[in-house]
């Protein structure tokens, strides 16, 4: 389980997280949503220890993650943009991660599951975005961890792989894992998520099941609900426009 209390983080003047409180208990499949720059990735990176909070506490399985690293054995992480060393081959990369993290045999089945065999001897710099994402997925899922964190997992994937990924995520959920997903694809949330955590201006604006979200914001689906949420409380709300003063609607739009 993950327990976050009073989490603050600024990058320079930009106050990204403003006292986030969040408790996540397995099993569960939770979508972390929010507009651009709302701090989704910062939150995830904080959990992973890649971003160091200014204030607040994060506990994983009851222990603080401050200056700890072993807890990352409990986490499978899929980074947002797959950035790999350009000069090494897919096979070498997988072998390297296995060397660093420990032996596993799941990579073999994952490679065939995502159809990566033809690319094993290609250098990562020469792969397309989608293929890289598949490599990324293999690296993430080849360890059987109780916590899975997926940052934009569907980016660049072809339909077949997308279907397979969803299936894989569902399986992991059924195995009783705690899965966190950030995504801009609302259909994915609709299809997979049990709960939604909505971040706005550095705080958790909404937390509840998908059904609760739809009910509160009167949307037919998640997408409409989120749109409604943003218009009501977010940067598109009338209050925000008024307080900003100069944020007028373009005149051409009014004429139409």
């Amino acid at each position: 389980m993950i327990e976050i209390t009073g989490l603050h983080k600024s990058f320079g003047k930009n106050h990204v997280l403003k006292g986030v409180e969040l408790s996540l208990v397995p099993p569960g499949l939770i979508a972390i949503l929010g507009p651009n720059g709302s701090g989704k990735t910062t939150l995830i990176k904080s959990i992973l220890g890649m971003v160091i909070p200014d204030r607040g506490e994060i506990e994983v399985d009851g222990a603080s993650i401050k200056k700890a690293w072993e807890y990352r054995r409990q986490i499978s992480y899929l980074p947002q943009i797959a950035r790999f060393p350009e000069n090494i081959r897919v096979r070498e990369l997988i072998a390297m991660v296995k060397d660093l993290r420990g032996e596993t045999e799941m990579d073999v089945s994952l490679i065939s599951y995502f159809g990566l065999q033809p690319f094993l001897d290609k250098k990562l710099g020469n792969l397309s975005g989608g293929t890289r994402q598949k490599v990324n997925l293999v690296l993430c899922f080849m360890y059987d961890c109780p916590i899975v964190i997926l940052d934009e997992p569907t980016a660049g994937l072809d339909p077949v792989s997308l279907v397979r990924l969803k299936k894989l995520i569902k399986t992991k959920r059924e195995e009783g894992k705690l899965i966190l997903i950030t995504t801009h694809v609302m259909d994915l949330v609709e299809e997979l998520a049990e709960e939604v955590v909505y971040l706005l201006e550095g705080n958790i604006h909404f937390r509840g099941t998908v059904a609760e979200l739809k009910e509160k914001y009167q949307g037919r689906n998640v997408e409409e609900s989120i749109a409604a949420l943003l218009q009501k409380d977010g940067p598109f709300s009338l209050g925000a426009v008024a307080s900003n003063g100069h944020a007028k609607v373009p005149e051409t739009l009014l004429e139409n």
């Binding site: 992973l48 690293w69 072993e70 807890y71 990352r72 054995r73 980074p79 060393p85 991660v97 660093l100």
Partner: peptide, 16 residues
């Protein structure tokens, strides 16, 4: 030049 590699490593269970 090795920032990608570094980031990959950082998400792994390895001491910084």
């Amino acid at each position: 030049n090795s920032r990608e590699f570094t980031e990959l490593l950082l998400s792994q269970p390895i001491k910084r």
